[in-house]
């Protein structure tokens, strides 16, 4: 693989974490414009841990995820009773506050005669872990995808588990769910916590991939994009948001023909797609249809005795 492909594929992997984070909240019926905040928290926390405290990368990423989850739960509790647009705007306000706080925050220590650490609007440079440990770009890409594969695997398990059913049920109708005896508030905060951790894992990996972060990376654009990916790719399965990211970053990235017209074409296509498929390419109906196809094929064989002799 050439360098360029590796970097594009790595980016797709990392953005997928934020997209999955927004998707998880969508499952529980909440629209968040603010998942970029946890991406930022994960990036800064993990970056500080390796570059300033000398922690190993896995520990740093885990610590970033914990920080992201803690902040998400802290945000989740006061915003619990907000619905729809009010929740969306509250998360937006929170994320922008986080971004501005990072713009104001300076925390640097001296390492080898050079100041290292977050430096306000100049960002946080010199997160040099991959260079200090001689990790090749390709290996780092594999690391991203290993973590992503585990995440996706657990999403698949989640979709089949009772927890997944509860999440979707709350998303469909929270009142009905609570009438069924489900502790809606607790599950919502729980979902928010996992979503925060997911975005933070993405952020931690991002900081080490690019070796620098700066506050404006984490503005509203990232949040709205990650929400859009789920809608484009489909809300029926966790592969949906991934498909959305691949379509946006991958496909358009590789098709250079459009150069200056890229967003004109892409924006129009997305708008048209949403008219035809308002819940995305891989929506619930399609996913269930495919599932039924498989089950029918299996039961069809046993019932009629057809199939290979």
């Amino acid at each position: 693989m050439d360098d360029y492909l590796v970097s594009v594929v790595s980016n797709i992997g990392i953005i997928s974490f934020v997209a999955l984070s927004a998707y998880l909240l969508l499952l529980t019926g909440e629209i968040s414009f603010g998942q970029q905040a946890f991406f930022a928290i994960g990036a800064y926390a993990a970056g500080i841990a390796t570059a300033m405290w000398g922690w190993p990368l896995p520990l740093a990423i885990a610590w970033g995820a914990a920080a992201g989850a803690a902040c998400a739960v802290t945000l989740g509790i006061p915003t619990l009773r907000l619905r729809g647009l009010q929740f969306a705007i509250a998360t937006l306000a929170f994320a922008e506050m986080v971004r501005i706080l990072f713009e104001l925050w300076r925390y640097q220590i001296d390492i080898d005669g050079e100041p290292v650490g977050p430096n306000g609007t100049d960002g946080f440079r010199n997160i040099r872990y991959v260079f200090d440990h001689n990790i090749e770009a390709f290996d780092f890409m594999m690391l991203i995808y290993a973590v992503l594969a585990v995440t996706l695997g657990s999403f698949m398990l989640l979709e089949r588990s009772r927890l997944g059913v509860i999440f979707r049920m709350i998303g469909e109708d929270a009142t009905l769910a609570s009438l069924q005896g489900i502790a809606v508030a607790r599950y919502k905060v729980f979902a928010a916590g996992i979503a925060g951790a997911l975005a933070a894992v993405g952020g931690g990996l991002y900081a080490h991939l690019t070796t620098y972060v700066e506050p404006r990376t984490f503005d509203v654009m990232l949040g709205v994009h990650s929400l859009a990916y789920g809608l484009i790719g489909g809300l029926g399965t966790a592969l949906g948001p991934l498909l959305g990211v691949v379509i946006d970053v991958g496909l358009l990235e590789s098709v250079r023909l459009f150069a200056g017209y890229r967003m004109i074409i892409f924006g129009g296509l997305v708008a048209l797609l949403l008219i035809v498929r308002p819940r995305g390419l891989l929506d619930e109906r399609l996913v269930h249809g495919i599932g039924r196809l498989f089950r029918n094929a299996k039961s069809g064989t046993t019932r009629t005795g057809r199939g290979p002799p």
């Binding site: 990368l57 896995p58 520990l59 885990a62 200090d132 973590v147 894992v201």
Partner: peptide, 22 residues
């Protein structure tokens, strides 16, 4: 499931090669 997942992630990350040098 989630606890198992987290443990799996941690294990995966911990197994990653490290070789520091100046």
């Amino acid at each position: 499931t989630i606890v198992c997942t987290l443990v799996a992630i941690a294990a995966l990350l911990a197994g990653y090669p490290q070789a520091a040098h100046g």
